[in-house]
């Protein structure tokens, strides 16, 4: 086993672990809005690590395509989270006992205004 093999093995396994954590979160978190956290963060990091592990082992000209996958993942994940999260909030699909603060639902009490102007 050479050094790249070991690095690749470690990153692939770490990536798979983070994907697993994301999956556990999707199953265990109380409501849609919370599940999105699990789908967004551990999942993204897991994918990035797996791409890194793959990049070490494949020919250099395919690495650019992997970079593209990483870039698209980083730019689209937040958009998905926002759209689905907003929909979940609007149809009141959030479990109340778990939501301790909802400043979007109670917009009558806005926080301190921006300190400029």
């Amino acid at each position: 086993m050479t050094a790249p093999d070991i690095v690749s093995a470690v990153t692939l396994l770490a990536g798979a672990t983070f994907c697993l954590l994301g999956a556990i979160g999707v199953v265990r978190f109380p409501d849609t809005a919370a599940r999105l956290h699990a789908a967004a963060k551990p999942q993204t990091l897991g994918l990035l690590l797996i791409l890194l592990g793959t990049a070490i082992r494949v020919p250099a000209d395919t690495v650019m395509a992997l970079l593209l996958v990483a870039l698209l993942q980083l730019t689209t994940t937040p958009v998905t989270a926002q759209i689905v999260g907003r929909a979940a909030h609007r149809i009141k699909a959030m479990k109340r006992p778990n939501v301790v603060l909802d400043e979007l639902g109670t917009r009558d009490q806005p926080p301190a205004p921006p300190s400029t102007r």
């Binding site: 109380p30 919370a34 301790v100 603060l101 909802d102 979007l104 806005p110």
Partner: peptide, 10 residues
């Protein structure tokens, strides 16, 4: 897991 507390902050 399911006991996680969340919230929305403005």
């Amino acid at each position: 897991g399911s006991r996680t507390r969340t919230g929305i902050v403005a």
